[in-house]
């Protein structure tokens, strides 16, 4: 489903990634680990094509980084859910509106949007917080909204970049359980983290270790 073939992507003197090769199959749970600045986020950005390789190619289903057109990128992103450490929720919209945005951009009908948003918010345990603004929610709840926003469009993969970076350990564990639950239903998950204790929470997950932009170990 996702393939990195001899991918190089650097930003001048700043860190990037070199000679990256790996594949992800549908329904897999993968941890990208390594110290800060190792290149974990770069790999995620290459997947949702916010960055493009200087050498090699990234293939996500039918999309190839070498020949994808600008206008095709939104369609790729509708198949890829994203969760960030800083949540990236819109502060002037409530939970429902934040999640529904994902579906409006994909031209869903209002009735379908309503059904899906309520469904996914119940799934992440936020059915009772529909009309709250992000500022009225705890960090863990905000991250659940971000997961709901990623999940509502039924993506083939969810990319989570340090999703527990701003959360306390107990909430982090809950969140990983939620991602695990989602994965069990068939959605591939790729989590970039430097928190090794989280990795142990998902038995059977594959581990890709990165250091200084290169893969040092794949299990």
């Amino acid at each position: 489903m996702i393939s990195f073939i001899n991918v190089n992507c650097t930003f001048g003197k700043k860190a990037g990634v070199k000679n990256i090769n790996f594949s992800v199959n549908g329904g897999e749970f993968i941890f990208l680990t390594g110290p800060s600045g190792a290149g974990k986020s770069t790999i995620l950005r290459l997947i949702y094509m916010d960055l493009f390789p200087e050498k090699g190619k990234v293939i996500i289903r039918n999309y190839n980084s070498n020949n994808i057109r600008d206008r095709e990128i939104p369609y790729l992103r509708r198949k890829v859910g994203m969760v960030f450490q800083d949540f990236r929720l819109l502060p002037d919209r409530n939970v429902y509106q934040n999640v529904a945005l994902s579906l409006y951009v994909s031209h869903y009908k209002t009735s379908e949007i309503k059904k899906r948003v309520y469904g996914v918010l119940n799934q992440v345990g936020l059915g009772h917080r529909v009309h709250y603004r992000p500022s009225e929610l705890s960090g863990g709840e905000q991250q659940r909204v971000a997961i709901a926003r990623a999940l509502v469009k039924e993506p083939v993969v969810i990319l989570a970049d340090e999703p527990t970076g701003n959360l306390d350990p107990r909430v982090s564990i809950d969140l990983m359980s939620l991602l695990n639950k989602i994965n069990k239903k068939g959605t591939a998950i790729i989590v970039a983290t430097h928190n090794y204790s989280l990795i142990q929470r998902i038995p059977g997950a594959r581990l890709i270790q990165i250091d200084e932009g290169e893969i040092v170990n794949i299990t």
Partner: peptide, 16 residues
Amino acid sequence: RELISTMKLVGATNNF
């Protein structure tokens, strides 16, 4: 700009 980047991240076309 936050709204624009979020919309683009969730798959909005430039026209949208």
